[in-house]
Every structure is written in structure tokens, then in C-alpha cells.
Design a protein around this nucleic acid. Structure first.
Length: 353
DNA sequence: GGTCAGAT
DNA sequence: ATCTGACCA
């Protein structure tokens, strides 16, 4: 779920990316869990059935990962995925909340199928989606075959992605969630896709969605806040580490409280009612100093087309023609946009193939 | 979510 | 050239 800062971000703190070319050559650290989960939830038939191979294994996440990665590389972006590690103990309640929600959704899905309500079936199937360890493993395998790098975070992927951007190893983090901003990412890109039509939930309407970038510094100065203030606001409205937030506090009140008292610690306890015990300081510390690692290498390699074929076509029944065509585009894009412009000695010593 | 082909 | 909708696995 992540922290909901949507209504806190002023329109003029968003940079709408009208043309992907403006990101050409930039390293973008994509929150892998966030991307895979969205593919898994969205790539389904009208009745909610996901794409599956002949052995009944779900392939929606692989389809999304494959085609979107190719599109982004074709636009000249240097993609690196960041995978979650072990979730912190602080997240236990949120994980339990999600598990319960999925269980509930699975029940509602069955009921909707029973009632023949396709629309509801699809909605609940989406909500019931569970990204398994096996799916994550398969995704990493595909990335290895494509020569697209990924970083394994020790804990939260969003924190590691933010760290890559802070260090300058990536230009921006990409996720639908705002958490990487709280983890201090200097730039966050949301809606990072090429084809920008999205169906509004519960409506027969489509809206055009364009990628948008939020710069942390711009955001903080527009709101006249420090990063610590922003973290405090996040905690007041609720984060993965205190999903309940505080009673009656949304972004508006949270902003006022932080502005009035200077920090969450100084807000009178009487104003902060919560159904559960919340260790505010621990959460705050987690956002400001999350576990991250320096042991990663971000290098793009030429795709191993045979291996990609083996995985997608032979193992998972993707159409040979489609994969072939997509790989052709990808290899061409790799050569033009990544290989040709990679710095360092690598290219001089690259093995002839 | 993304592709592809047919319609406009 | 852009849009629509069926299909993808």
C-alpha cells in the first residue's frame, strides 16, 4: 500500500514527462515488487483469470516485465530493478493486514464467480493477487537472460532505490508508491509506462496517464518542510509501519500539526489517538536511516536471446513470433541506447559474440 | 499492462 | 495517424 501522500503533493511540484526522450540515457531504479505486483494484478482476462502457461503457472508478471522493460529500453532508459529483501519486523502488522485483505478478496471473488458478476470477479481477483517467491525468482531469471541488472535490497526495495539515487548511481526511483520520497530519494517517477491509457476503477472511462516526476527538494521547498517533517506527516497519516495512522488525521491536519509543533514528538499526546501502540521514533528512524547495501553492481549486458526464448517460449508457452519480434527490438535498442554509450573500459574489452 | 489488427 | 477492442499465456 505505502504511504498516501497523494493529496499533499502540489500540482506544481510534479513534472509531467510529456516525452520519454527527456529521460534518455538516465538510469532509473524501478521498484520491482511494485511493478511485478501491478502486472500480476492487472494482466487478466475480463473474469479475473491471469495469463497462465500449459502447466497452470501464472505468467502475467513475466509478460508485463518483458514488454515494459523492452519499451523503456527502446526509449533509451537504463533500467535497473530493485528487489525487496527481508521485510522489517515493523512491517508485520501491515503484512498481516494485506494477508487478511487478500483472504477476504479471495472469498468475494468466489462469490462473484458464483453470481456470474464478471466485473466484481475481476476486481476481487486483482485484490487477491499474491506475488509468490517463485514469481520473483522467475522474474530475476528473465532479467538475467535479458542482461538487465537488478539490485537485491537487504530490506525495503524503496529504501535501496532511494539510496541508489542519493549516491548518484541512478537518476530517479520509479514506483507508484511515495515511500521512496520518505526514504530520501531525490527524484521519484510515477506512472512510468509508454502506453498511457488507464481504466478508471468502477467506471467505463479511460484517462490518459502520463509519467510524472517529483523532485524531493522542490516538494520540500514548495511545502516549506524538511525531509524529517515530511516523514512525520507520513507517520501521522499512516505508513506500512503504522497502517492505521492516527485517528482523524489526514494530510491536511498532519501538515498543520507538523507546522504548528515543529515535529511529531512535540505534538501533544492528547491530539494523537491511535487504536494501537505506535513507536513513532522507531518508524522515523527507519525512514531516515533504513538498512541499505553498497554491494551491488549495475551493468547491462547483451541479451541472451536463446535463453530468453527458452524461458518464455519453451517453459511458459509465450508466442514464438511475439517474443522473437520483441527481442529483435530489444537487442537493437540495447545496442543503440546502452552498449553504444556505456562508459568505462567494458566496451573495449567486450567479448565478440 | 501490452500487442496486434482492423476500423475510422 | 489514431483509436478500439480482442487477445495474450
Amino acid at each position: 500500500m505505502g504511504v498516501n501522500l497523494k493529496d499533499l503533493i502540489p500540482e506544481d511540484a510534479k513534472i509531467i514527462i510529456e516525452n520519454m526522450r527527456s529521460l534518455k540515457g538516465k538510469v532509473i531504479a524501478i521498484d520491482a515488487y511494485n511493478a511485478l505486483y501491478q502486472f500480476l494484478a492487472a494482466i487478466r482476462q475480463p473474469d479475473g483469470t491471469p495469463l497462465m502457461d500449459s502447466q497452470g503457472r501464472i505468467t502475467s508478471h513475466l509478460s508485463g516485465l518483458f514488454y515494459r522493460t523492452i519499451n523503456l529500453v527502446e526509449e533509451g532508459l537504463k533500467i535497473v530493478y530493485v528487489f525487496d529483501g527481508k521485510p522489517p519486523e515493523l512491517k508485520a502488522r501491515e503484512l498481516e493486514r494485506r494477508r487478511a485483505l487478500k483472504e477476504e478478496s479471495a472469498r468475494k471473488y468466489e462469490a462473484a464467480v458464483e453470481a456470474g458478476d464478471l466485473e466484481a470477479a475481476r476486481r476481487y481477483a486483482m485484490m487477491a493477487s499474491k506475488l509468490t517467491d517463485e514469481m520473483v525468482k522467475e522474474a530475476k531469471k528473465l532479467l538475467d537472460a535479458l542482461g538487465v541488472p537488478y539490485v537485491q535490497a537487504p530490506a525495503e526495495g524503496e529504501a535501496q532505490a532511494a539510496y541508489l539515487v542519493k549516491k548518484g548511481d541512478a537518476y530517479a526511483s520509479a514506483s507508484q508508491d511515495y515511500d521512496s520520497l520518505l526514504f530520501g530519494s531525490p527524484r521519484l517517477i510515477r506512472n512510468l509506462t509508454i502506453s498511457g491509457k488507464r481504466k478508471l476503477p468502477r467506471r467505463e472511462e479511460y484517462i490518459e496517464v502520463k509519467p510524472e516526476m517529483i523532485e524531493l527538494n522542490t516538494l520540500l521547498s514548495k511545502l516549506n518542510l524538511t525531509l524529517e517533517n515530511l516523514v512525520d506527516i507520513g507517520i501521522l497519516v499512516g505508513t506500512d509501519y503504522n497502517p492505521e495512522g492516527f485517528e482523524g488525521i489526514g494530510v491536511k491536519k498532519a501538515y498543520q500539526l507538523v507546522k504548528t509543533y515543529g515535529s511529531i514528538e512535540k505534538i501533544p499526546k492528547a491530539l494523537l489517538k491511535s487504536s494501537v501502540e505506535v513507536d513513532v521514533l522507531e518508524i522515523k528512524k527507519y525512514f531516515l536511516q533504513p538498512p541499505v547495501t553498497d554491494s551491488y553492481k549495475i551493468e547491462w549486458r547483451e541479451p541472451d536471446e536463446k535463453l530468453v526464448f527458452e524461458i518464455l517460449v519453451n517453459e511458459h508457452d509465450f508466442s514464438e513470433d511475439r517474443v522473437k519480434n520483441a527481442l529483435e527490438r530489444f537487442t537493437k535498442a540495447y545496442k543503440e541506447n546502452i552498449k553504444g554509450v556505456q562508459t568505462g573500459l567494458g566496451k573495449w574489452f567486450a567479448k565478440p559474440s
